[in-house]
Design a protein around this nucleic acid. Structure first.
Lengths: 292, 292
DNA sequence: AGCACCGATACTTATTAGGTCTGAATCCAG
DNA sequence: CTGGATTCAGACCTAATAAGTATCGGTGCT
């Protein structure tokens, strides 16, 4: 089949043979054998040039695809044999669920076919810590710091917090805000146990006020719909801006507080699958974090 | 590859060898060679039984598909060689398999003699999208929307959904039903990934309830037999009424949700055969759809 | 413990693929 | 119109690969 493709592409037995690192006569024989097996003429040979019949055209296009699939299968089987298979349970922090997670899932599909990811999104760091320790999840994308000493971390990225405002809010007309501008605003916040909340509250305290939280919510999408409804303002990680929700504007902060994002796993988990999975994080985030 | 499939299916080298009309030792050797080529263990042999590794499982399922495709290619090439003008591989959505498909096949017989159609019925839209992209089928009759941007669509028709009921069901005595009448009924449904399921669920939600799905099934015939057996009710496209299955009655819905039917192909497929085939759809459905 | 079962190994034979040389057909140059 | 160059096909031989035969070794069952 590969022989046929070579001949059909080169339209020349000699050149095709060269490309296949073999002599021309055996190639002619193989093609002839193929034609006999199919009971069909595939090539029209005049001594001066080689042409494809309709059947040949069909065989060319389809067998190209087939060979590609076969090669891919071979690769995939090799990968799976090297440990790229099985199930990993992944927990993802609320704020990373929509942006980072799809990237990871896609990367895993390519580099670790056969791997099933069981993803739970919109989780909070303390939840994930416990889940990791109890081995209910294998990997977690979370916001440091973690308290547990059984976990290892790898730093992924740093996100500045931005302000989410209802679009008709008076502060929406200004470009760059200061945290203290928000002192009198009602806040929609992530749960108390979340890292974003901790950082936000701390930053507000440093800016000289204590935020007035009117609503607490875990899911970012819910949080933003509260903002869109005009119930208050919120501090969310930068990456969240992509959530182009109707009725919301995002404004940058002077001296914006930042939250880290990291991938975490249980240090004593020596699964080959896990190691391979963690390697996926090397390219998008080359920085190495410090273990807990 | 065929050898591996035989062994994997029989889970027994001896029986597999028998099936392949060969002796057992060369089979062992071939499998071993395959494992070496892939650098991966595919089978776990205890002297008592043969088991598949994860890599083996992958190879089994994928290579089965590949072999089927190779065989089909062989057939198709033979057909073209014998004078057929060409082969088009057509995928058809479950609900259109029985009503629309025969019409298309007949039209093709009249207007494109020499064209062979290789039809696969009872497929789901996402399956067909992938098959089109990977060029495993040339044309698909499916239910929009499609996510892929590599495909072009032509609208064919709109089908209202009707209720399929066991004939002794209390609602069977009534003529026109409202969706909310079904709020407490057990549902037999198409798979989650199907367009009909998506539309049905959405319609139920709008009618103020969430359907209680007791059974999921892909084939319409199976679905209807569950209904006939009294396991529950189902929403199926109008065209399905022709399926005069014993023990089932169909009832119209007030404000019936509707699903579209369209023909789809890969935009960059410039086969002349395909263009001609698509023209067949002009007469029965003159409306032009919007590309994906 | 012994037998039956099953896959692996060692070795031989048959089949198939590939290489070399050569021939026939066609095109082109002079 | 003839000789050289080009290109595919056939004849023949060799090397590689697959299949066959006999046998071994380990495992579970009685």
């Amino acid at each position: 089949m590969r022989y046929f493709i070579a001949v059909a592409e080169e339209r020349h037995f000699g050149r095709a043979a060269q490309r296949l690192h073999m002599a021309q006569p055996p190639l002619s024989q193989q093609i002839k054998a193929l034609e006999e097996q199919l009971g069909t003429q595939l090539l029209v040979r005049t001594t001066r040039k080689v042409d494809l019949t309709a059947a040949g055209e069909l065989l060319l296009t389809r067998s190209r695809l087939l060979l590609a699939e076969i090669d891919k299968l071979e690769q995939d089987v090799k990968l799976v044999g090297q440990g790229a298979s099985g199930v990993l349970r992944v927990g993802v922090s609320g704020t990373a669920t929509y942006r980072l997670m799809p990237m990871i899932v896609q990367a895993a599909r390519v580099h670790m076919p056969g791997l099933r990811l069981s993803v739970q999104g919109e989780m909070l760091t303390p939840e994930m810590e416990i889940a990791l320790e109890e081995q209910r999840v294998d990997v977690a994308v979370l916001r440091p710091p973690v308290r547990s000493n059984q976990l290892s971390l790898k730093f992924l990225e740093k996100d500045e917090l931005v302000v989410a405002l209802p679009e008709d809010h008076e502060l929406a007309s200004r470009g760059l805000l200061d945290l203290s501008d928000l002192a009198e605003e009602p806040f929609i916040a992530y749960p108390l146990s979340s890292a974003v909340n901790a950082i936000s509250t701390e930053a507000c305290r440093e800016a000289g006020f204590s935020p007035h939280i009117v609503q607490e919510t875990q899911e970012t999408s819910t949080l933003l719909s509260f903002v869109a409804a005009g119930m208050g303002v919120a501090l969310v990680p930068t990456a969240r801006r992509m959530f182009a929700l109707q009725g919301i504007v995002f404004r940058q902060l002077r001296n914006a507080p930042a939250v880290d994002l990291a991938v975490a796993w249980k240090t004593d988990n020596d699964s080959a699958l896990l190691k391979k999975f963690l390697d996926l994080f090397e390219s998008p985030a080359p920085t190495e974090g410090n273990p807990a």
